[in-house]
Amino acid sequence: MNLPARLLLVFCVFILAAGYWLTDFDAHFAFMGDGRWKATRAADPVNGKVLFSAGGCISCHASSGADDRVHLGGGKPLKTPFGTFYPPNISPDLKDGIGRWTETQFIRAIRDGTAPDGRPYYPSFPYTSYRHLSPDDAIDIFAYIRTLPPVSGKPPNHDLTFPFSIRRGVGLWKLAYLNGSVIEPEGNRSESWNRGRYLVEGVGHCAECHSPRNFAGAIIDEKRLSGGPNLEGKGTVPNITPDKTGLAAWSEADIASLLKDGFTPDFDSVGGSMAEVVRNTAELSDMDRMAMAIYLKSLPPLQGQMRSK
């Protein structure tokens, strides 16, 4: 069976099992999450801006057509094997955006994948990675978004194929695959390594594209970052662990430089969906880009697919 067919089967099983479990969203609300919904300090929009860039929020939530980096009206179609998603308006508009949300609602959305009314979000919103953010950092992003201009108008509903169109099935998917918690620094590692890990594994969600996925569409942990299929279409996403099929020949400076200007050590310019990622990482500081490079080069090398180039 090909990937979509297998995903379909698994999804059907989930739906059946969902029989009455999660027929009411309160159950979902109570069971999801690691209970960390409260920040411990006041929000800092300056830090929020950095994390917003690292998180690539704009790549999915920019108003369709607009190539500026501040209008979060949503609606740019995101094509996947499950159908087309239209990311919502997350501008601070009171009516169509998230202008009326509380900090706790935002934390639950981005860390638990749970909407204010308890509905589960589809994991095309990469909360499986954003879950690694601390609640403090989450409210910083929220505070930064609130400094941006409100945009009116709501994008169309997602256009998903059955059975993925049944949102309830996602609740069970989350139960099975949404794990992990806030990434805490490891004492025996350098500050930059810890920062790099936080950015790569958490808000940067690099693994969402650079990893193979299992039959249910969840990342295979043992093969994290060793390359994967291109979910948005043809082609593959390269291995970024320091294996010879990956970044073994790249120096830390090479990786940091790619994240700044998009050029590989051969002076090829990355294309595909990585071009958009570079637009985001280009907004970060040299130190943050170097931290990500240091973390990637410290990973155990995993064998991936040999790329043609």
Binding site: N230, G233, K234, G235, T236, P238, G262, F263, D268, S269, V270, G271, G272, A275, E276, V278, Q305, R307, S308, K309
Partner: peptide, 12 residues
């Protein structure tokens, strides 16, 4: 370089 490769190029 970046924009043309983004739109007109797919590896593998």
């Amino acid at each position: 370089c970046g924009a043309c490769h983004e739109a007109w190029r797919i590896k593998d």
